[in-house]
Design a protein around this nucleic acid. Structure first.
Length: 903
RNA sequence: GGGACCAUAGCUCAGCCGGUUUAGAGCGCUUGCUUCACACGCAAGAGGUCAGCAGUUCGAAUCUGCUUGGUCCCACCA
């Protein structure tokens, strides 16, 4: 077979992926083998692949392919997430393009559109993962809103409700006015922002009742003008004054003490509100006077509760001013802020405006929409018990985080956790299985929680006074559940562990092995999966969590559509091949650290593919012959066998510690440096008279075996090219695959073999350096002298072959009477005679520099050994080591000086 | 406001339970090579006072403290 000199991934990738699928190599069923399970972090069903997915899924594929090749029953379950708020937003946007408003549709009509959209775009991302080579068991592809998963969600909701962990409560929630839904605390992202601090005048409302107004307060300017006495309130949100129902001061604040017991008038609004006292107020902030708007601020809400204040909700769900505001009705809150500021100024009610930096909460899914605190009734999940059971396995090490620094983050969150707001005012999602009974519909409305309407009806009829109601009387709760309320069940629900507890699959595959995900969803997902796992399985959902970093561009910026700095993953695969992309990503990954992605890394991956390809071309072109093995070949084979063993052990250790980039780099260097640059060069047959010499059988077979092992080691990282070459390395049976071959177990290696070959490597490098310096062609044969001693003669043939040495003379003393150049490998002295080709002056300078270096080194060592305290206190082994350094350096110096003299 | 992490060659990082390292890797860079596997290559090189200061120690990139610069997480200060 004639192979082109460039590897073309497009000719192999699709072919082998189809082969793997046809033979169901990715499919797993429970059997007697040890299971290895990964569940995919389900991407948004309508999402498209980005670099973060590429990294995350490449890592998972490496882990799962490796486990498979270690003989485990490996399973990687794929699937997608319905992503309620994100998907609903997309559907709303798409409908808007067609001029359709969500509020004009019924729930059923809207859901029809949402499913259409899902079916149209859903799963694109999973198709893209196939291009990457992902060895997911596609037969098991799941969706968080498919039948079994939805049923699991509802069952869990009912169960938690029955356990008293779910309740309905009137609370101040984080409201997204664009999506018009409540959000959980962790869906709010706080951003520092330049804004204004407005100082508003609140005139005393009761001046005519002759208040006791102080004539002076030490160090403070009192507020009085022609209209009377006034207090000044600093606020960032003047548009909320229509909801003010009090002003608050700290009881211990001397400068505002005069306001006690008075009423003040809300500017523009004209309403008189009481001045209340609460230690919550920070005396130092602003003027020490706080406007209290119980409906629109969490702290104010709490103040309102303790001080029994009226609550005036001045906003509509979409963030516009409601009739309750009385002013600016229908205006957007942000527009209103500017308008009211102008109006206050105009009316002389604004003392001043300052620049101010504060933190504003934004919706995670609508990043340009500021969250509005809003008082409304929502469903909550109590967290105390769940947090407790989730904390233990992580703190006790039953679940290991990589890197473990995230244990702190995790603990901190769980120890200070708030109840989880699980209801969303959305249609796309799992509808809350609560049914309201006919009644007043007020705050204390009656409801039942049940899997379906029939069950709900049965439950409802047991309630006194409702014995005769019909299904039509029941009103199903309109809200959907938070997306994460379904994904937290993922490792359990994928094996139907909720609907069919104790089934064969859940018993076999649960707990899963490793989870690969980003630290940004440690609270959203990781922590909650541990809660659900412990609650419903009584066991951890996974053993290890590998946290990836964020993929950033070369300049350290997050990848984003706006910046246009995110490469198209499929484009990259087409340009460099999936294997190249995978290697490029893996080389720069390390657990928990952000990765700075640059296309040059993928180029490196592509180059490596090509290197493997060409190494294969070389070996494939060899002719095997029944001739005795040369000494050089024997030494090389022996060495590479040892080197392979040693590296295999290293790589195993790296993978076990989740140091995947180190493992990949070690494999890369083993193939490129050790195998190609040294081993293949050492055994490569000579090319003579227009034909290549044959290779002896022993070496030929060993080389093929090495190649086979190397391909197996590389396969988890570069699945396509390794399959292609493995299939061609020797005739394979139909249905065979490298995927299911074993990666060899490690055995002990002969360190001495490696050490002595290293001497040869260094000698060869030195000879090559001499050639380079003296401008001597690699083809010109050179002689080499070695001072007899600890030099291992076995490696001579290798030095001769790779160094272009015609003769190695092992002598008692180097014959430096002829001009030439010496070098040292460790303490072994070498000399290359060079008849009249060297520059004596340059040579001298070099030796002098070397001498200076060793003298400095020796000085340091001598200083240590001359220090009585060192010799007395340091362990004897350490002192011995220093002595050895001393004698070695002295010896080196002597030989250098001898050489110098002889020049 | 609380907490975590980071600072080592031009770049990205490893080493960090103190002593076989007057510091390693990959990429990049320099020089020389159309050597019949590969220029997506081969070979040989250059390059760092381990952020700064102080301390502990016979000995510190490695431990402690402080300083500077950077990143991230958590928190209801208008």
């Amino acid at each position: 077979m004639e192979l082109p000199d460039k590897y073309d991934p497009s000719l192999t990738e699709d072919k082998w992926y189809r082969y793997w699928i046809e033979h169901k190599f990715f499919h797993s069923e429970p059997d007697e083998r040890e299971p290895y399970t990964i569940v995919i972090p389900p991407p948004n069903v309508t999402g498209v692949l980005h670099m973060g997915h590429m990294m995350n899924n490449t890592l998972q594929d490496v882990l799962v392919r490796r486990a498979r090749m270690k003989g485990k029953n490996a399973l990687w379950v794929p699937g997608t997430d319905h992503a309620s708020i994100a998907t609903e937003a997309k559907v709303v946007g798409r409908l808007a393009e067609k001029g359709i408003r969500k509020q004009d549709l019924t729930r059923e009509e809207f859901l029809r559109h949402a499913w259409d959209w899902t079916n149209e775009h859903g799963g694109i991302i999973l198709k893209q993962l196939r291009r990457l080579g992902a060895s997911c068991d596609w037969d098991r592809t799941a969706f968080t809103m498919d039948g079994p998963r939805s049923e699991s969600v509802l069952k869990v909701f009912c169960d938690l409700y029955d356990k008293g962990l779910i309740y309905r409560g009137l609370r101040m929630v984080n409201w997204d006015p664009k999506a018009r839904t409540a959000l959980s605390n962790i869906e709010v992202i706080y951003r520092e922002e330049k804004s204004k601090l407005y100082y508003l005048k609140y005139y005393l409302a009761d001046t005519d009742t002759n208040p006791v107004v102080p004539t002076e307060v030490e160090g403070e300017v009192l507020h009085r003008d022609e209209k009377g006495w006034y207090a000044v309130v600093a606020t960032t949100r003047p548009e909320t004054i229509m909801g003010d129902t009090a002003m608050c001061i700290n009881p211990k604040d001397p400068k505002n003490g005069w306001l006690k017991g008075h009423k003040v008038t809300v500017p523009l609004v004209g309403r008189a509100v009481p001045v209340i006292e609460d230690r919550y107020v920070d005396v130092e902030f602003g003027t020490g006077c706080l406007k209290v708007t119980p409906a629109h601020d969490v702290n104010d809400y709490n103040l309102g509760k303790t001080h029994n204040l009226e609550t005036i909700d001045i906003f509509n769900p979409d963030g516009t001013l409601s009739p309750a505001a009385g002013l600016y009705v229908g205006m957007d809150r942000m527009v209103c802020r500017k308008q009211i500021a102008a109006d206050l100024q105009e009316a002389g009610l604004m003392e001043k405006v300052e620049d101010y930096v504060n933190k504003v909460g934004y919706s995670e899914r609508n990043p340009n929409t500021a969250v509005e605190p809003r008082l409304c009734k929502q469903w909550y999940l109590k967290m105390e018990h769940l947090a407790q059971i989730a904390l233990k396995p992580v703190l006790e090490g039953n679940i290991k985080f990589h890197p473990d620094k995230f244990v702190n983050t995790y603990r901190n969150w769980l120890e200070n956790i708030d109840d989880w707001c699980i209801s969303r005012q959305l249609w796309w999602g799992h509808r809350i299985p609560a049914y309201y009974l006919p009644g007043n519909g007020g705050e204390d409305e009656t409801f039942v929680v049940a899997l379906n309407k029939e069950e709900a009806l049965q439950k409802a009829r047991k309630i006194k006074g409702y014995e005769n109601i019909t299904a039509a009387d029941l009103r199903h709760d309109e809200d959907a559940l938070d997306t994460w309320f379904s994904s937290w069940l993922w490792p359990v629900s994928l094996f139907d562990g909720i609907n069919d507890p104790g089934n064969k699959e859940i018993r076999y595959y649960y707990p899963t092995s490793d989870l690969v995900t980003g630290p940004d969803i440690i609270f959203f997902w990781v922590a909650r999966m541990i809660m659900a796992g412990e609650e419903y399985m009584g066991d951890v959902p996974f053993r290890n969590v590998y946290f990836t970093g964020i993929v950033r561009d070369k300049l350290g910026r997050k990848m984003s559509k706006q910046l246009g700095n995110s490469p198209d993953p499929i484009g990259l695969i087409e340009k460099y091949g999936a294997d190249g992309v995978r290697l490029g990503i893996l080389l720069c990954t390390s657990a928990g650290n952000d990765i700075l992605f640059d296309e040059s890394q993928v180029e490196q991956g592509r180059n490596f593919s090509n290197k493997i390809w060409n190494a294969f071309r070389l070996v494939q072109g060899w002719k095997e012959a029944d001739v005795p093995q040369s000494k050089a070949n024997r030494v090389a084979v022996e060495w590479f066998r040892a080197k392979l063993e040693k590296t295999l052990a290293q790589i195993d250790a790296d993978y076990d510690k989740f140091r995947i980039n180190d493992a990949v780099m070690a494999t890369y260097k083993l193939f490129w440096d050790d195998f190609c640059a040294w081993y293949l060069e050492a055994v490569k047959p000579a090319y003579r008279d227009g034909a290549q010499d044959p290779v002896d059988s022993e070496t030929y077979q060993a080389t093929k075996e090495f190649f086979d092992v190397l391909l197996r080691m590389l396969h988890p990282v570069m699945p396509f090219i390794t399959e292609e070459l493995w299939q061609n390395l020797q005739p394979r049976k139909k249905g065979e695959t490298i995927m299911l071959q074993r990666i060899p177990e490690t055995t002990d290696c002969d360190g001495q073999v490696i050490d002595r070959f290293e001497i040869a490597q260094q000698a060869i490098a030195s000879v090559r350096a001499i050639r380079q310096q003296k401008n001597i062609s690699p083809k010109t044969p050179l002689k080499l002298q070695v001072a007899a001693g600890s030099f291992p003669e076995e490696v001579n043939p290798v030095i001769e072959k790779l160094g272009g040495i015609s003769e190695i003379d092992i002598c008692g003393e180097l014959d430096t009477s002829v001009p030439g150049q010496g070098f040292l490998v460790g303490t072994i002295r070498f000399f290359v005679p060079l008849q009249g080709m060297i520059d004596v002056k340059e040579q001298k300078e070099k030796i002098l520099a070397e001498i200076a270096r060793y003298e400095g080194f020796l000085k340091g060592v001598n200083a240590k050994l001359g220090n009585a305290r060192f010799v007395e206190n340091a362990p004897s082994a350490v002192v011995e080591l220093e002595r050895k350094k001393q004698s070695d350096a002295t010896e080196k110096l002597n030989s250098l000086r001898t050489e110098l003299e002889k020049l």
